[in-house]
Amino acid sequence: MIYFYPEGVNLKIDESKQIVEALLIASPEPLTEARFKAAMGEVKTKAPLKEIIDELQTEYESSNRSFFIKEVAGGFQIVTKAEYETYIKGLFTKSGKLRLSQAALETLAIVSYRQPVTRNDIEAIRGVSSDSSLRTLLDRKLLEIRGRDEGPGRALLYRTSSEFLQYFGLNSVKDLPKLREVEDILSEDQEELL
């Protein structure tokens, strides 16, 4: 059955699903609404992207596929289910993905809550040189350099990337866990003492 629309090329509902699926598989980054629109151009789909995604999701669930669609970094992405990790790990030479060190995690936490930040800002909080963790995070593309500080020395400014959101399964930086207030930490410490 063909649905007619006043403008552009029209698609059958079933084909919309196939197109979205193809885009999900071929997209180098999570498929956002904007990228989806750009890819579709003049062509109109029967339903909005989110609805088509939901339909695909239901289909994958009912047919017991090894993957599902995850909403991440403001878009959608096909990821494998956790239960297949054991097998997938075998595809990689090392033992799967490398975990971030405590130093890298602390550095990342400071950048993500206070971005954009300079290396000095990070080191002032951590009290240790953070050069090597910054380099690791840049190499893994979790951080990126965005311009320079206006102050003296014009230090490089760091911020988190969209790969960062992907890596931690976040939709946006707004989804970060709330940073605890100093007062909370203090009152808890006092309770511990009493």
Binding site: I25, K70, Q77, I78, V79, T80, K81, A82, E83, Y84, E85, I88, G96, K97, R99, L100, Q102, L105, E106, L108, A109, I110, Y113, I125, R126, G127, Q166, Y167, F168, G169, L170, P177, L179, R180, V182, I185, L186
Partner: peptide
């Protein structure tokens, strides 16, 4: 105190990492 805030946050990051690790994408 300031350092403690971020140290705590970093354990939340480690938890998120642990949660996302088993999922692979193409």
């Amino acid at each position: 105190l300031e350092y403690k805030r971020y140290k705590e946050a970093s354990s939340a990051f480690a938890e998120m990492e642990r949660h996302e690790r088993p999922h692979y994408y193409h």
